[in-house]
Amino acid sequence: MPLPADELLQGTLDLLILRTLTRAPMHGWAVSHRIQEISRDALRVNQGSLYPALHRLEDEGLVRSEWGISELGRRAKFYELTAAGRRQLAREIATWQRFAEAVQLVLQLA
């Protein structure tokens, strides 16, 4: 049973999107598909959260978008990380790791 990514901790979806976009500019469907694929179907991103999140990130200047031609030969909106987005991603990864370690510790030792 896949976990809905957007019902995880707040901010996790943003983290996943930003991380996914480090490889290359992608359109929305590719982002969601990639997350699902990499997590071996463990995480599934709901469209209802994906697009608002993408637009919010763009609004905050962490990603920017451009219209390009997709693999279907159709116009699609591609998102890519901005410099601010990269810095933000680095910060969020660090936070996430410290958080995960802390949780791990509690789970083991409590």
Binding site: H27, W29, Y51, L72, R74, A76
Partner: peptide
Amino acid sequence: EELSFHLEMQ
């Protein structure tokens, strides 16, 4: 357009 593209891809 963005949303209908997503639907098409899916």
